[in-house]
Design a protein around this nucleic acid. Structure first.
Ligand code: FES
Ligand code: FES
Lengths: 154, 154
DNA sequence: CGGTATTCCTATCGACTTAGTGGGAATATA
DNA sequence: TATATTCCCACTAAGTCGATAGGAATACCG
């Protein structure tokens, strides 16, 4: 019950990988004496789709599509061409897990009548409907209270 | 995302119907001067599968299977043969929604590694895994804190 | 006993979703 | 120009889900 598609699991693992790549990149800079300056926004280091796929044992072509989807929703930024790759669009602490999940799977909606109050004869008074709305709010609450940073630091 | 199969929605609506049938049945008894005495356990009145299907506009044969499944898990009791039907196995306040959901769809398990800590190389230290376990606990918490009575009274 | 209403069991089907593959076009770097 | 990368579209294989069908087992009722 409530099983999460691999699409979403892969997407999150890729984001975790990107966050780590960022941390590693900054550390390397510091070590070589060059202070970190965020030139292209808060996140500067990229990783290629193929690289992430290898590290995480995910089907390369499949992950490619997932990252493209994440990019379309503004979670990551893509750089095309040689030496291109993906990087986080903003700091991990600013990426809500709810946004990630919605980017990959659409809105949390246990049943259609969460929005469609007319799916049974009772309409708005429908009792099961309120039960499902409560579930949606509970899930949304959990997901929106965590950021990618929380996942990494867990 | 997190959409609930019709199987579960139908099952819950059927249980709500059974709870109502019980209330209506008792009221009729009271009216005719006969005091209610729970002879066969806390719940006495039955409804047939076909009857519920008609009232709730659910495919009759499909609902039949759902009710049988609910019976196998001890949520309802079946009486075969003529004048048979289904009734709640216990008082609505004693039926946790978590048990209903698990009866129809199995345990809440967003990802396999909720139990299998060895699904990626990081094992127990895996960060996404903890995130998913947190989600499972959140959902389980919501579902186990409500009973069928809460759904009806909502 | 025979008729009927009910649950119970098993098999099947079509539509949809999911995970994954493939081929290449566009784009940026060197 | 050669190369490495994202991007785009179409496709397939396998699984799940909702629903249907046919009948066997069981219980009541006359
Ligand atoms: S409004 Fe959807 S089941 Fe009642
Ligand atoms: S243990 Fe399942 S993804 Fe790491």
């Amino acid at each position: 019950m409530f099983s999460v598609p691999t699409r979403t699991q892969y997407g999150i693992r890729a984001l975790v990988h990107l966050a780590k790549a960022e941390a590693v990149g900054r550390a390397r800079l510091e070590k070589s004496g060059v202070p970190f300056a965020a030139a292209q926004g808060p996140v500067a280091f990229t990783a290629t789709s193929a690289e992430i796929a290898r590290a995480e044992s995910i089907s390369p072509k499949y992950l490619e599509g997932i990252l493209t989807q994440l990019k379309a929703k503004g979670i990551v930024v893509a750089e095309r061409g040689k030496n291109g790759g993906f990087r986080l669009a903003r700091d991990p602490g600013e990426i809500r897990m709810l946004d990630v999940v919605e980017a990959l799977e659409g809105e949390v909606r246990p049943v259609d009548c969460v929005e469609d109050s007319g799916c049974c004869a009772q309409g708005v008074a429908c009792m099961p409907r309120r039960f499902w709305i409560g579930l949606k709010e509970t899930i949304d609450g959990y997901l929106s209270s965590r950021t990618l940073r929380d996942v990494i630091d867990a």
